[in-house]
C-alpha cells in the first residue's frame, strides 16, 4: 500500500471544506491543537464542529469565526471554568452567531457508536427528567420491543472528517494510542474521511509487534501527518505532559475579545505551522513538559 503521509497544511486543505461537519476528538488527552490552528489559518468557514468537550481549541476556532454550529456535551475549560470565546458567540453573537446542539456525554458517545456501527440511532438510558430533550428535538424516546421499557434515542453522527491525534502511526495510517482513549475510535469509524496526526512515524513492523494497541486501522485512514507536539497544550502520554498552566492562563487570555484576538494573531496567524510554534515556545519550555520514562512490561504474542 502506498504512503498516505502529507503535511498538515495539505491534509487540512484537502479534507476540511467550508461547511463540513468536523470532529477533532480527544478527551483531554491527544487533542490536535495543531489541526485547529491550521483550520483557523486556512480561514475555513461555516463548520459544524462536533466534540464531547469543545475546549480551548474549539474556543479559538469559534472566536476566529470558523464555526457555524457546535454539537457537544460539555463546553468548558476543564478544571478552570468558562470558555469565553464560545460564551461571547452564544451570548452576544461575537464574532458571529453560533448555533448549538447539545447532548450529555453518554448521548454524544451513543451518537458516535451509532455512526461507527452504521445504524441510524442508538438507544440508551438517560435524559428522562432532564430539560435537554425539550431543547434538542433530536433526543427522542422509544419503548423496547422486548420488555416495553422506555429508553432515550439519539441519531447517528457521521461527520465529514475526523482529525485524530495519536502517539504513533505507520505510513498507511495504522494508528496506535495508549492512555486515555476517549471516543477516538468511534469518531474515526463514524466519519467519512479520517486524518491521523501522529507524534511519531513508525515502521509497520512496530505496529504489527503490538496489534492490540492499534485503535484505528489504516483501512479507514485518508491522510497521515507527522507532527510532534501537535497536541500542546493538551498532552500525549509518554511524550509530554499536559500544560496545565496554559489552561489556567487561558482564562485570562480569553476573558476579553481583544486578548483572545491578540493570542490568535501571535500564536496562530503569526506562525506558519507547528514547527515554528514549537520553536517559539522554545526548547526550555518544551523540556519542562517532557514525559518521564515509564515503559510498560512487554507481553508475548508468540504461539
Amino acid at each position: 500500500m502506498s504512503s498516505k503521509v502529507m503535511t498538515l497544511t495539505q491534509a487540512v486543505g484537502e479534507f476540511v471544506r467550508d461547511g463540513d461537519t468536523v470532529v477533532i476528538e480527544g478527551f483531554t488527552h491527544l487533542i490536535c491543537f495543531a489541526a485547529g490552528h491550521e483550520i483557523i489559518r486556512q480561514k475555513k468557514r461555516d463548520l459544524v464542529a462536533c466534540r464531547l468537550t469543545p475546549d480551548l481549541i474549539y474556543d479559538q476556532m469559534v472566536a476566529a469565526g470558523c464555526v457555524r454550529k457546535l454539537v457537544f456535551s460539555w463546553a468548558g475549560n476543564p478544571g478552570v471554568g468558562s470558555l469565553f470565546g464560545l460564551r461571547r458567540a452564544v451570548e452576544e453573537s461575537i464574532p458571529r452567531k453560533v448555533e448549538i446542539e447539545e447532548y450529555s456525554h453518554f448521548g454524544m458517545v451513543a451518537r458516535f457508536m451509532a455512526g461507527a456501527s452504521h445504524l441510524p440511532f442508538m438507544h440508551l438510558k438517560t435524559f428522562e427528567g432532564s430539560d435537554l430533550p425539550r431543547k434538542n428535538k433530536n433526543i427522542k424516546f422509544i419503548r423496547c420491543p422486548y420488555t416495553g421499557k422506555r429508553y432515550a434515542t439519539v441519531p447517528a453522527l457521521n461527520p465529514d472528517v475526523a482529525i485524530i491525534h495519536v502517539q504513533r502511526a505507520d505510513e498507511e495510517g495504522n494508528a496506535q494510542i495508549w492512555g486515555l482513549m476517549g471516543v477516538q475510535r468511534e469518531a474515526a469509524f463514524a466519519s467519512k474521511k479520517v486524518v491521523i496526526v501522529a507524534e511519531e512515524l513508525v515502521p509497520g513492523e512496530v505496529v504489527r509487534a503490538d496489534p492490540n494497541r492499534t485503535l484505528i486501522p489504516g483501512l479507514i485512514v485518508d491522510a497521515v501527518v507527522i507532527e510532534p507536539f501537535a497536541a500542546h497544550p493538551s498532552y500525549a502520554l509518554g511524550y509530554y505532559d499536559r500544560d496545565n498552566d496554559f489552561y489556567v492562563e487561558w482564562a485570562k487570555i480569553s476573558k476579553d475579545k481583544a486578548g483572545l484576538d491578540r493570542y490568535l494573531a501571535e500564536w496562530v496567524y503569526g506562525v506558519p505551522g507547528r514547527r515554528e510554534y514549537r520553536e517559539k515556545l522554545g526548547t526550555e519550555y518544551l523540556k519542562k513538559l517532557e514525559a518521564d520514562n515509564r515503559p510498560s512490561g512487554s507481553v508475548n504474542y508468540g504461539f
Binding site: T28, H29, G79, V109, G179, Y235, L237, N244
Partner: peptide
C-alpha cells in the same frame, strides 16, 4: 491532584483504561 478529569496521572498506574463507550 488532577486539574482535569483527563489528566495523565489518572491513566498511569490505574487498573484499567477503557474507552468512553
Amino acid at each position: 491532584l488532577p486539574l482535569s478529569i483527563g489528566d495523565p496521572c489518572l491513566a498511569t498506574d490505574s487498573i484499567s483504561v477503557c474507552s468512553m463507550v
